[in-house]
Amino acid sequence: MNTPAETASTPKRREWPLWEVFIRGQHGLNHRHVGSLHAPDAEMAIKNARDVYTRRNEGVSIWVVEARHIAASSPSDKGPLYEPSESKVYRHPSFFDIPEDVGAM
């Protein structure tokens, strides 16, 4: 995801906004972020995404969203967000010893 460079040296015209592109690679899979591109509106963003990101059958469906609409966690939140789950090993099935005689479980 990109930070819009509004620090630019006096842009003469408005640049096309930045869009993030998500592609469903095959039926049954989630859409995945593949990259970004510039386009004036959503319709053009999908057309451009098709040309830039699916030239070799990489997708069956495209989502685009303007980059400024994406809210993201910050790297400094890593501790508070993810550390609590590190101590909860019992959330994984391998935490429990099940006797072999019980069979597949």
């Binding site: 990109n2 040296s9 842009p11 640049e15 930045l18 990259g35 970004s36």
Partner: peptide
Amino acid sequence: VQDEAGHGLYLYCAAETLGVSRDE
């Protein structure tokens, strides 16, 4: 040649994440 255009675009987007715009 179309691929080359695509490669340019991937790279401009990568550069843009560093705080410079493609037009710049």
